[in-house]
Design a protein around this nucleic acid. Structure first.
Length: 462
RNA sequence: GGCAACGUACCCAAGCGGUAAGGGAGAGCUCUGCAAAAGCUUCAUGCAUCAGUUCGAAUCUGAUCGUUGCCUCCA
């Protein structure tokens, strides 16, 4: 039984999908005006893990992530670079997919784009207008929040306590917190025709429209970063529920931030690293380990020492796995050990996707493997246990994505290495420690690590 | 000002009323020509502070201190 912390109810609830065996899930995706930063990556990786765990648990998951390809920032960027908004959006959509793949994030079922759903958005705005909930003000259409008595139910905010914003959207609004459904086009901005004149959709509209199009008017899980709770998700609820009269989402999930120096990482503060930059220095597995080692609802502080540590952890686990595989041969059996580990793993993961516990079980398994590998002879039972542990690591990895890929070196390279190691062996036989140590050091410098073990000399790419 | 979250060892971090998981660092040992890797042992009578509830509290209640987030584009 999976439990989920639901932002809407502020409680941990047993997860029961609307349709038995099937999960409909929507997560707010990128606005494609730039590379995404490593903080955005945390949200994407969090929900990638959630999705994979649901699938592992036997659900068929329909996963939708939107691409916001029309927005102020895209316009700003296009003007700055002297190219069209379309070109900016296309470029960074492509870059988004490259980073997603590099981070070992499984592709969503659908990646709908805002600009491809303008028709449906217009329909939603018109429906709200007809109900007297939306009003036209000089080509801008606003949502009248005074008409929605449930407004604020997600974020727990009360209208009278909201602070008037200094940067609130321009236009004649009835209430300061009414938000734009449709914005009239300004000079030089992309626009679409509408009953209220040329303009473009407000930010919140696309998520209401595209989620219902691909998942239905009510769906199971809606995810995003915690900062989207208000106003974005609040407004999505307002739009959708006022137009359909049905509950919009059953479970709202929000991932906490990645901080720098205990402060929120954000584009506007300028204290961020792009995922692309970090991926140049560290493997995706280390990034995933760093994030997944902590529960998704706790803030993480990003520091170089922490990602270094995560990288070492990932190497340690991968080493145990690889060495175990070498010793075990073809994986088979091991039912008992596998079941035991999976059971512990599930206890953690079922409890609101507690990956911190999941990973501690992975460490326990790696330790057990290393312990078995200490033995010179493996009994039938030992081998069976080893198999079970390895199978568990593979299962856990299919959700967490923390095992390093095998470095592909090619037959010639492998043959060359065996010549080099043979040479070093003969030097060691002659007790020429100076030369053999020099060789080891030189190899280390070019990223090849040598270990002299009781089972012979092993090498590995760093 | 309103609304939230959080404070566990040297560091990171689980824990959600039954007596402190896991990882890293440190120390000692085993293996080893050395190094590395791996293993073993060790490392919080205590969980921000102070009261209270309870047979029993890191866990519940209240107060205090501290940190952060949201209320405005944001993952």
């Amino acid at each position: 039984m999976i439990k989920i912390s639901n932002t809407l109810t502020r409680k941990k609830e047993t997860f029961v999908p609307l349709i038995n065996g099937h999960v409909s899930m929507y997560v707010c995706g990128p606005t494609v005006y730039d590379f995404f930063h490593i903080g955005n990556a945390r949200t994407f990786i969090t929900f990638d893990m959630v999705r994979k765990y649901l699938e592992f648990s036997g659900y068929k998951v329909t996963y939708v992530m939107n691409i916001t390809d029309v927005d102020d920032k895209i316009i700003e960027r296009a003007n700055k670079e002297g190219i069209s908004t379309k070109e900016v959006a296309e470029k960074y959509t492509e870059e988004f997919f490259r980073d997603v793949e590099a981070l070992k994030i499984k592709k969503a079922t659908f990646y709908p784009k805002a600009t491809e759903h303008i028709e449906e958005m217009l329909e939603l705005v018109q429906a709200l207008e007809q109900k007297g909930i939306a009003y036209n003000s000089d080509g801008d259409v606003f949502f009248d929040i005074s008409k929605d008595k449930n407004y604020g139910k997600l974020s727990g905010k009360k209208l009278e306590n909201l602070q008037a914003s200094e940067r609130s959207e321009q236009g004649d609004k009835k209430n300061n917190f009414d938000f734009a459904l449709w914005k009239s086009a300004k000079e030089g901005e992309p626009f679409w025709e509408s009953p209220w004149g040329n303009g473009r959709p407000g930010w919140h509209l696309e998520c209401s429209v595209m989620s219902s199009k691909y998942l239905g008017e009510t769906f199971d899980i809606h995810g995003g970063g915690i900062d989207l709770t208000f106003p974005h998700h609040e407004n999505e609820i307002a739009q959708s529920e006022c137009s359909t009269g049905k509950p919009f989402v059953k479970y709202w999930m929000h991932a906490e931030f990645l901080n720098i120096n205990d402060e929120k990482m954000s584009k506007s503060l300028g204290n961020f690293f792009t995922a692309r930059e970090v991926l140049k220095k560290y493997p995706a597995e280390a990034i995933r380990m760093l994030f997944l080692q902590k529960h998704y609802k706790s803030p993480i502080n990003y520091e170089v020492v922490f990602i270094e540590e995560a990288k070492n952890s990932v190497e340690k686990i991968t080493n145990a796995y690889r060495r175990g595989l070498e010793r075990a041969g073809v994986l088979k059996g091991g039912e008992f050990a596998y079941r035991n580990r999976i059971e512990d793993f599930k206890i953690g993961m079922d409890d609101d996707f507690n990956t911190a516990i999941g990973i501690s079980i992975v460490f326990n398994s790696a330790k057990e493997i290393n312990l078995l590998l200490e033995k010179d002879f493996l009994s039938e039972e030992d081998l069976d246990e080893l198999n079970g542990e390895l199978r568990f690591l593979e299962a856990a990895d299919s959700i967490l994505g923390i095992l390093l890929p095998k470095s592909e070196t090619g037959d010639k390279f492998n043959a060359l290495m065996s010549v080099v190691l043979k040479l070093r062996s003969s030097l060691r036989d002659k007790k020429d420690w100076e030369s053999s140590d020099l060789l080891r050091k030189e190899l280390e410098n070019i990223g090849i690590r040598i270990n002299d073990t009781s089972q012979g000399t092993k090498w590995d790419l760093k």
